[in-house]
Design a protein around this nucleic acid. Sequence first.
DNA 1: ACAGTTATTTAACGCGCGTAAAATTAGTCA
DNA 2: TGACTAATTTTACGCGCGTTAAATAACTGT
Lengths: 341, 341
Amino acid sequence: MAGTKIRNMEEFAKLSGISRPTVSKYFNDPDSVRASNRIRIEAALERYEYRPNIYAMNQNRKLTKNIGIVVPLLSDPYFAEIARNLEQRCIAAGYRPSLFSSHGDPVLEVQVLDTLRSLKPVGVLLAPLGRASNPKALEKFCNDVPTLIFDSSVDEIGLAFVGSDNFQFTAHITDYLCRTGEPPCFFEMKTPANPNAHRRRQSYVNAMERFGYKPDVISVGGEGWGLEEIGRLGGHEALRKGWFSTNTILCSNDRLAIGLLTACYEQGALVGRTADSTIRVAGQDGHPHSRYTCPPLTTISHDYDAVSQTAAETLFASIEGKMSPWKSTRLEGKLILRDSA
Amino acid sequence: MAGTKIRNMEEFAKLSGISRPTVSKYFNDPDSVRASNRIRIEAALERYEYRPNIYAMNQNRKLTKNIGIVVPLLSDPYFAEIARNLEQRCIAAGYRPSLFSSHGDPVLEVQVLDTLRSLKPVGVLLAPLGRASNPKALEKFCNDVPTLIFDSSVDEIGLAFVGSDNFQFTAHITDYLCRTGEPPCFFEMKTPANPNAHRRRQSYVNAMERFGYKPDVISVGGEGWGLEEIGRLGGHEALRKGWFSTNTILCSNDRLAIGLLTACYEQGALVGRTADSTIRVAGQDGHPHSRYTCPPLTTISHDYDAVSQTAAETLFASIEGKMSPWKSTRLEGKLILRDSA
DNA sequence: ACAGTTATTTAACGCGCGTAAAATTAGTCA
DNA sequence: TGACTAATTTTACGCGCGTTAAATAACTGT
């Protein structure tokens, strides 16, 4: 503001009347300098609006402040929401997050990891693609860069794993459905991209057997991340061919359920728990959109906030030297009762 | 792979038998070195897997290869999709994109711009928050960094503007609705975040008057970016109080329409164009989710690909020196007929 | 094979800041 | 006030690469 543009830290230090190394210390941790100096630096900062050159900063530093956030598919509002949450936590903790999406493509995932490497991050929060991921590339990356895996686990790689407790998810909602009506069939993809799907199917089977019912799993075809369309097409086929053995359908996830609801609508099947309804549909995930389906979708929701908080704090602790052995944290979900089941 | 880890370009140059400045040239543009040398470098690259240090690269360079992409709300699949598209185009053109979201918050938007500045990007693709944006901060940023504005325009700032032709959008779908049933009312937010909303309302009014109908605009309250909920709550109120003067409702955008559909469902109003339906609902945007509403939403869709392509190519041209005066490009949308109207 | 052009090599400087060591100063407490 | 400790200043080097200028080598067409 005050006329001259500051070119570097040297000039800024001179203008604020403080030595450059102290100013440098200040930028790396404002609390590491004496209060009187901090005040003078911040006063000068107001007047001259100088920012250290991040390239020069990071070049000759052992540890950057960068944190990479990688999600498999940013156009899925679930991941977008998690990413937003993580991003804010990183900023609040004084790190510089950068966001990446694999866009559902394993080749891109490897590419993203490669890009990330060149950023020399102190840590990475990674939600892998899952089944499609290149396991060797993932493992190699985790060996080079402190990485916390979240959402979907891949062996015991990285610093730790944080995600939802898929067994609890499915057991809980299966229990609810059994108590309130006919026991559910399970609607899923034949070859799901996300390994959580297998846990959910298994949990469904376990729960049904525990209740003394016969499990009925309907697996539909389709590849990739267009889950709504897979659910819709699979739903049409299943409805037409009478694959559903009961009037209650538990979907492996909300996006599949959204597609199934569309299929039901298109076939004139009334979904809900009212007397005139012919079918009940439930999802799993607590997808941001699930509130707005018709009827609104009964589901079991991730604890978004707890997942991101646990993931972020575990990574921060590890970065700050509070190392701990590999650990898997799985958080419970909350049942959200709406009109669909 | 071959044993030793390469520390810097000097070492890599030695191992590949080529001088460092030539290797440096190669990395800035592989085609700028003699073919024989390019082949030798690439061979060495295979064997030793060396990557230049991006911090050292960017520090002493006048122009980086960085491009910033900023969207107002990444958890909106529309913006997520546009961002994905832009990102891929940047990579294909040899740039390094980094993605940011303002998360609907004007304070964050300014913060993002500030972060972006320190990245010293050669160019930025910016979709502003709109009404909530800090216009001074935006203008200042555009003066400092070559910025192309997309999606929603803010005066004549930046290199150029690329977006959809909101007048065409609304005129086109209003025309369709008038020809196929009762003329529509217009359902919108009282204080929309996005300035495109005003164009759409205006276009609706114009179109109705052109057809000799009386326009009827229903503006509902609510702030922020939770458009589905605003549409749902506003929809409930409008339905209860009989604010809709005809059986056809054109929504200012798809997310509002999705909320309105939920309200209709919750009040037992049958939406569609069949004989037994009591109400027709149409949206605008071609939101990724609009296919899966019940009934599937009739809408007019952005030409995602054309918008991103035009935006990216305009920016690239400007970066590469092919400067041109400020220009506004507005692309037409395509009507997508589905069951809701 | 030769002159003419273009690309490469050599040598060297600088970018802006992190960081370390030694000298100095400011703050603390009795 | 003095002795002690913690913070700051001074000085200086190095990070890895961009970039330039001059010297040299490699291609081009004839």
